[in-house]
């Protein structure tokens, strides 16, 4: 479904991604784990078209994403819950969700998707008229994910959905990710919380200083000695 082939991305002169190749198949949860500054968010930003790769290709269902205008990427079915959530602080919860559906051509499914988001995150429904900036961190994370779902994407990119959340909320968020996936949305999940990520993913990639150093099924990555040492905190 989504295929990155030898993608190189630069920030000015800094070589951030040094030839990343990732494949995400239809219906999968694929996770990209790695430490701070390894290039996880850069990978997602590159897929979304916010940064252009200097070389390599990004193909979604046969369409080269790196060749279309950045705002068309969302129209083609890529939605993201970004790092730091990036909700619109002075717009209401409902307006935030409406903006999520901006790229959709058929507006008919809007109400249905809104109901779906509210059934996944009942808390958002209670806060519907509240300004995004007044929500708690967990609620903002739900809003960011809900907003991405409103685009009815083919593939959902999740960037650190567990960051800064209380453990009980982290579990709720991960349960919801599984539920979203079961409803048929393909997911590429970026996480520092490697243990949680690997326990719900089908496959995983390990990224280090801009390079993929390992890729395997989630189960075998979890039992890999090197991964355990570096990312799972198991000695």
């Amino acid at each position: 479904m989504l295929e990155l082939k030898d993608v190189h991305t630069y920030y000015g002169n800094i070589h951030a991604l040094k030839g990343i190749s990732i494949t995400v198949n239809d219906g999968e949860i694929v996770t990209l784990i790695g430490s701070n500054g390894a290039g996880k968010s850069t990978t997602l930003r590159t897929i979304q078209g916010l940064i252009r790769p200097r070389s390599g290709s990004i193909v979604l269902d046969g369409i080269a994403l790196d060749k279309v205008a950045p705002h068309k990427v969302a129209e083609l079915g890529v939605a993201q819950s970004p790092e730091g959530r990036m909700i619109f602080p002075r717009m209401t919860v409902l307006e935030n969700l409406e903006m999520g559906a901006y790229a959709r051509k058929e507006k008919s499914g809007f109400q249905q998707d809104l109901d779906r988001v509210f059934s996944l995150f009942p808390r958002l429904k209670e806060r519907i008229t509240q300004k995004g900036g007044t929500l708690s961190g967990g609620e903002q994370q739900m809003l960011a994910m809900g907003r991405a779902l409103m685009a009815h994407p083919k593939i959902l990119l999740l960037d650190e959905p567990s960051m800064g959340l209380a453990p009980i909320l982290v579990e709720l968020i991960f349960d919801t990710i599984v539920a979203i996936n079961k409803e048929g949305t393909t997911i590429l999940l970026v996480e520092q919380n490697a243990l949680m990520a690997l326990s719900i993913a089908n496959r995983g990639y390990v990224i280090q200083t801009g390079e993929i150093i390992m890729s395997d099924s989630a189960a075998s990555l979890k039992s890999n000695e090197m991964v355990q040492k570096a990312y799972l905190g198991i000695e």
Binding site: L50, P82, P89, M99, Y102
Partner: peptide
């Protein structure tokens, strides 16, 4: 209006607006 909301969204967070497919 949709365009008006897109303007507010762009003013509040340009990167997020781009991600959602708003033509900045």
């Amino acid at each position: 209006t949709t365009l008006g909301k897109a303007m507010r969204a762009t003013a509040q967070n340009r990167d997020a607006a781009k991600m959602l497919g708003i033509n900045i």
